[in-house]
Write a protein that binds this DNA or RNA. Structure first.
Lengths: 133, 133, 133, 133
DNA sequence: GTGGTCTAGACCACA
DNA sequence: GTGGTCTAGACCACA
């Protein structure tokens, strides 16, 4: 799995990193229990600051997607990912609402919007269950 | 149509305002040609800074959702909304990707995700063509 | 309410700060809705770095004790504090266990330990409901 | 008596080890004069680093809970445990203060907090004087 | 070596 | 002015 950052993007670097790691887990490129690079290592590889990586890791730890293991370092949550909580549902719906409204105003049909969602989801989980590293 | 701001939200006020106006247009609560409150008026009604409203209006004007008329003041774009541009498609897909990944990791199925998108879209356009606020 | 830090303590500065703010809320010195100093201001007052204060505020925000309000700045949670969750109970019990064991080994009786807890609790909430600022 | 470590915990392994040995003494599972496994042995059993066990043993020796014998190896203090010193009282109170404040803020009553303390104490010394692990 | 903590300093988005 | 983000650099606790 590789990570690509857009330093010009409006999306903060730490958020891009969070997104891409989550996408990595969704796609199966990162499996439960898999180790992640150390903050220092990843920071160097990406050419960004250690603290930025740290912030991303911490957010993912808080959400329950990563664990900090005293021997293995940072690993992908091995004990089951967090489920679809109320809070997540709410946040998801709120964000979809803005996207759907913008799409609708521009003339994208319900069908097209749902189809787009479905196809993006499918792309996301592509390799699921695939390569076992 | 009324606007509700959450001052505790992480989403900047100007962005909340943008979203809600777009949602108003999508739902039909705001029809093409409809006047919007003046910057000053809306700022006062919402108890927020004048510059904040200005920023939102400007963004919406740039995207082609609003027009600023010498005489009529700010109105909803009467000459046809912008369509589904390449840039919009790209941005939409990118944001859906993050949402889809988070949903997938938490165990939400493709079907559930697509259904959620569809249902949110439907809610969004509810009043379309219907009553004039 | 004032804050006193021990820079030589083993307890990290950010944690001392967190504890003292929580104690301030418990004692009533800080009331729901009360504003806290800005990170910069508090950092300067305490002679510590801005980021250290920021870390404390963020932790307290995550726990639901503080809110970041876009107009009022950082304020004490006005919408009801988080309650006694499972997670809190568990953490509390775990920490009490270590303290109780050390006390017991040193010959402190159950009565004395419980009494100590009670008296510390009482001290903590001293001014509750007292000064309304 | 057995020891269970949580490698994901924020509490350092050496501290967990210290706590559990103290709890073992408090419960009576470890009696004065009882031998403890050698550093090497315990490290191997627990699958942790030799230095970590060493650090724990040293701390416990300094506090007066363990003795290191030329011939008998490491044993539980046979000549009377240290009592409730000023320093201990102070540290205990300080830690209880943070716990009490957090409990109070979350709405736990004085009675509940004292009761929790009492019940945890009781659990801790359960097997006192009873069976020999 | 690795994560955690802290400082110093800077720029930007937001209101 | 205020919080958010990012960088650079340093020291320490831990294993």
């Amino acid at each position: 799995m590789f990570i690509e950052l857009d330093l010009q993007s409006e999306t903060p670097i730490y958020a891009q990193l969070v997104n891409q790691i989550v996408e990595g887990i969704a796609s199966g490129a990162l499996q439960p229990g898999d180790p992640l690079p150390s903050v220092r290592r990843l920071a160097e590889d990406l050419g960004i600051n250690l603290h930025t990586v740290n912030k991303s890791y911490n957010l993912l730890k808080q959400e329950g997607f990563l664990q900090v293991h005293r021997k293995k370092g940072v690993i992908v949550q091995p004990d089951g990912m967090p489920g679809v909580t109320e809070a997540f549902e709410e946040k998801l719906r709120q964000q979809l609402r803005s996207l759907a409204a913008a799409a609708a105003v521009r003339g994208m049909s319900e069908e097209a919007f749902a189809q787009e969602s479905r196809s993006v989801y499918r792309d996301t989980i592509t390799n699921r269950g695939g390569e076992q590293r």
